[in-house]
């Protein structure tokens, strides 16, 4: 009964407030139920008061205040956009400016690392990075000879010696005839050497790469020795007219 009264109480409220007619059953219930009769009386009284409560003081015109705030907020948007564009420009400029340096540094770092490429069927070869005593001796000797030659020849003739001899170049450019290839880089780009050979990878083998500067007569020799699991690289430079050693390159 109480639940029914609650439901009818809302219908009664709507009837008092908006004139929504009660259905016949509800009307009969209200006529018979004391609780609903009281709800009807309360609803009338409360809604009479609510008309008073609903009164609102006169609103002030807010149009000019709102519009001034809107236009004040709109202006700086361009300022922010310009600032953002400037910052973007500075960042992009900075990246472009710094990029060559970083690439150079990266190349230098990569070149200084010895890199060995081995065929897929062979075990990864171990690079003997430092035949230090031997190599330092050879490099010191090479540097002394180079500086002696450079002092003698005119400045315009100095140029990097990187071109391989025709026969060697053919071997390098034709991978079909060279199933196995090793590329090694030392700490200076001019010392980069590449060699190929056709022996079975499990056997010891070696190859020699020779280049002669036609102008100065200087000869650069690179010898790569491979034994199972080890690759050793020797480099040497001979000034013009000097006879190449037969052993211990």
């Amino acid at each position: 009964m109480k639940r029914e009264c609650d439901r009818i109480g809302d219908a009664v409220w709507e009837y008092v407030r908006f004139g929504v007619e009660l259905c016949e059953d509800d009307r009969q219930h209200v006529a018979e139920c004391q609780e609903c009769e009281r709800i009807l009386a309360e609803s009338r009284r409360v809604q009479g008061l609510m008309k008073e409560v609903s009164r609102v003081p006169q609103a002030s015109d807010c149009t000019s205040a709102v519009m001034s705030r809107i236009t004040a907020r709109r202006r700086p948007v361009w300022g922010y956009a310009a600032t953002a564009a400037m910052m973007l420009l500075v960042i992009v400029g900075g990246l472009i400016f710094l990029r060559p340096h970083s690439v150079t540094q990266q190349i230098a770092r990569e070149v200084s690392k010895p890199v060995v490429t081995a065929p897929a069927h062979a075990a990864a070869p171990e690079v003997v990075q430092d035949q230090s005593a031997n190599r330092e001796r050879i490099e010191a000797k090479t540097a002394r000879r180079r500086s002696a030659v450079a002092a003698k020849r005119p400045r315009r003739n100095r140029r990097p010696q990187a071109r391989p001899a025709p026969q060697q170049r053919n071997e390098m450019e034709n991978p079909a005839s060279a199933p196995e290839q090793i590329a090694a880089s030392k700490h200076r780009p001019v010392m980069v050497a590449a060699a190929t050979w056709s022996n079975a990878p499990s056997q010891s083998s070696s190859c020699t790469y020779t280049e002669t500067n036609e102008t100065t007569g200087e000869t650069s020799i690179c010898k790569v020795e491979k034994s199972p699991g080890t690759v050793t690289i020797f480099m040497e430079s001979k000034p013009g007219g000097e006879k190449l050693p037969q052993k211990g390159i």
């Binding site: 609650d6 109480g9 809302d10």
Partner: peptide
Amino acid sequence: RLCRSRALLR
């Protein structure tokens, strides 16, 4: 909600 709020108010 309305039904509940009216009942509460009464």
